[in-house]
Amino acid sequence: MRFAGIGDEAAADSAGQLDALRQLGWGAIELRNVDGVAIADLDDRAFDALADRIAAAGLDVVCVDSRIANWGRPINGRFEDDLSELRQLARRCATLGTRYIRVMSYPNAGLDEREWARRALDRMALLVRRAEQQGLVLLHENCSGWAGSRADRMRELLDRAGGPALRLLFDIGNGVPYGYDARALLDEIIDHVAHVHVKDARTGPDGQVTYTLPGDGESGVRSCLRALIDHGYTGAWSIEPHTHLRPHQDQNTTGTDGVAAFVRYGRCLEQLVRQEILSGRSPAGGGRHG
């Protein structure tokens, strides 16, 4: 098994992000923001310095989380922003040594269902063609957007806008805040999952969602991990704790405490996998992990 983590969930700065992965002894990182700046928006000097630090730390980059079609870019927004970000990330992913870019599928903005679907599919089809030309793979996350929480729409997205440059990213913890059963969704899309985010959450008596250690919430982490392993999943398990950082809610309390919490989260996942998921199974091969 190969463990990874979204770096800015541990710390805003690259030093803290890399230190968190070093403490865990993991060999891979997922990138989203550094010092509050998206990877595509870093100036060339800052990006080159980041790439050098990652290489010096001996880390692989498993995915870059873009803002393409995400919760901040509704279907009536400027499509050029997404095309521009994809062009920039094509160059930067080549430097970082990854083909995977996380995307979503455009939240609605007052359109009727048919028009929302038409525009989302048209845009995604063009993005996928551009990604394929650059040797990239877009990973659609079960989060915000037209196909964010419905398996039938995810399959339609793959059928009508897809190709070898479009796969699915399954986030175990998104079912709780978005109101669906994550395991039930996984069962319908599991053939197409190429990357996994490990997150867990529960809904309190007041209806508020809180994020927990993996296995302590209502997301079905154990069930989803077992299903993926039984199905032959060989990608990374990338932690996204959301305990100190929630970008879509402008919540950020990362820092020294964030690094410690991130490391604790990673250790908890390792223990859960070792003691409850892989117990009694043949030893798993694959990438490095602590």
Rank of each mutant, 00 (worst) to 15 (best):
E9P: 08
S14V: 12
Q17R: 03
D19T: 00
R22A: 11
A38G: 07
R53D: 02
A57L: 06
G58T: 05
L59S: 01
S66I: 08
W71T: 03
P74N: 14
I75E: 03
E80Y: 09
D81N: 10
D82P: 00
L86P: 08
L89N: 00
A90W: 03
A94Q: 14
T95C: 15
I101M: 05
R102S: 06
E113N: 07
R118F: 09
R119P: 00
M124N: 08
M124I: 09
A131Q: 06
E132I: 11
A147F: 05
M154T: 08
A161C: 07
L166G: 09
P177F: 01
G179K: 15
L186R: 00
H197N: 04
D200W: 06
G204R: 14
G204D: 13
V209G: 02
T212Q: 01
P214F: 06
D216V: 06
G217Y: 00
G217C: 06
S223V: 08
R226M: 06
D230A: 15
T234D: 05
A236R: 08
I239L: 13
H248W: 15
Q249L: 15
D250H: 13
V263H: 01
Y265F: 14
R267S: 05
C268D: 11
C268S: 11
E270L: 12
R274M: 08
L278S: 08
S282R: 15
